[in-house]
């Protein structure tokens, strides 16, 4: 039976799945043919991320200059965060944050949106680990050594 390059090369398969998941949460699961799981993850993270953005507004939510620590969490959602960042700069090109982040109180709409989007990013880290394990699984079941075990042995 003819197999694709990624199926022959397990390291490539795992890497492609992880990168796809980072770019679009759930896409890695679709790639490794976990279609239902991939769709659930894709829809859930996309809706939650963009509901967060809708609550707080584009330029307030993903702002690497104003909220750099939160941005580290948000960027784990990959494509969503990059799209929101790009759209935010397009809508409001001023690089200076409107308020000093030190004095932004908890509980405002902007903070809720930042929490929503950063949690989506952190959930995507779990999803990336899951897709790596699932991409490795058929190799273990077939009796082949997964790349991680090869690295540890070598």
């Amino acid at each position: 039976m003819k197999t694709s390059l990624a199926e022959d090369n397990p390291q490539l398969r795992m890497s492609v799945a992880a990168v796809l998941t980072w770019l679009m949460p759930g896409a890695g699961h679709l790639y490794i043919r976990e279609r239902a799981r991939g769709l659930i993850i894709l829809v859930t993270i996309a809706i939650t991320f963009w509901v967060g953005v809708a609550v707080g507004g584009l330029s307030n939510t993903v702002s690497p200059g104003g909220r750099s620590l939160w941005f580290m969490g948000q960027i784990c959602a990959g494509g969503h965060a990059l799209a929101a960042w790009g759209l935010g700069t397009w809508v409001d090109p001023s690089p200076v944050p409107k308020r000093d982040p030190k004095f932004v109180a908890f509980g405002r709409s902007e903070e809720i949106s930042v929490v929503y989007t950063a949690i989506c990013g952190m959930l995507n880290i779990l999803v990336i680990f899951d897709v790596l394990v699932r991409a490795e699984k058929p190799l273990i079941q077939a009796g082949r050594t997964p790349p991680a075990a090869k690295g540890a042995a070598g």
Binding site: V55, G56, S109
Partner: peptide, 16 residues
């Protein structure tokens, strides 16, 4: 929706 933050009161924030 996407540009301006929503004016939410306390109980609405708790519901989120």
């Amino acid at each position: 929706l996407m540009i301006n933050p929503l004016p939410l009161v306390r109980w609405q924030q708790a519901l989120l």
